[in-house]
Amino acid sequence: MKHRPLFLKIISAVILFGAWEIGGRSGVSFAFPPFSESMVAFWSLIIEGTMFKAYAETLKPLVVGIIISGLLGITLGIWIGLSDKFDWFISPIFIVMQAAPLAALIPLLIMAYGIGLTSKVFVVCIMAMPVIVLNTSAAVKNTPTNIKEMAKAFQGKDIDVIFKIILPASSPIIFAGLRLGVSAGFIGAILAELKITPTGVGDIISYSRSIADYPSMYAAIFSIILLAVLFLNILEKMENFLFKGNNQGYVSE
């Protein structure tokens, strides 16, 4: 059967959303509206334009944070990958950050930078940076020796080796690190809105919870998860398309 995967995907979606619908209707909890009610709420949030305004707000710290951590993270990562000394000095910080529950720093960020955009951008950055830095440095360090030696054997200069060999060879993993960074950044952005100040989608979630408008709350949560998953999927598709045949196939987390 040609469309078997798609068919099964649809089946499994029907099962899950069906279970949600039945669970909601059978009244498991007053705070668990059926799928259909949530979708109606979702639709009306879109029609009213509330959703778009909310996302304009929510995506601000995310975009700024990702741009900062991308630029800074990749630069640091390349530097770490190329220099043993810098590697020794800087890497442990990011290795610890990678394993640590950085969300714990949020109360501190609020104290230091208040409850505005700066704090939120910071949250996104600390969540997204470690994986970007560590992936970049690992990719640079693991560039296959044979092609580096090939470049040197043909009298390539160091700068050529970096720009013509190391960077192209590591770009798939750097990009994958960036994708994982975006994924972590989403967590940061939502955390910021739920913990620091409710703006954007976080506001819809908090407000509808406080007035017990549960369908809207589920709709907002549904929308942010959907958006994140769709965006990350697009990034992954791009990755597969851009780096066909140049995939070393490892990503560290």
Partner: peptide, 21 residues
């Protein structure tokens, strides 16, 4: 085939958003 799409989705989804639920 039934489960994989969901597992992949929840792997990268920002689960923090589920805390209010």
């Amino acid at each position: 085939e039934l489960l994989l799409p969901w597992v992949n989705m929840f792997l990268s989804a920002p689960l923090t958003a589920l805390v209010p639920v």
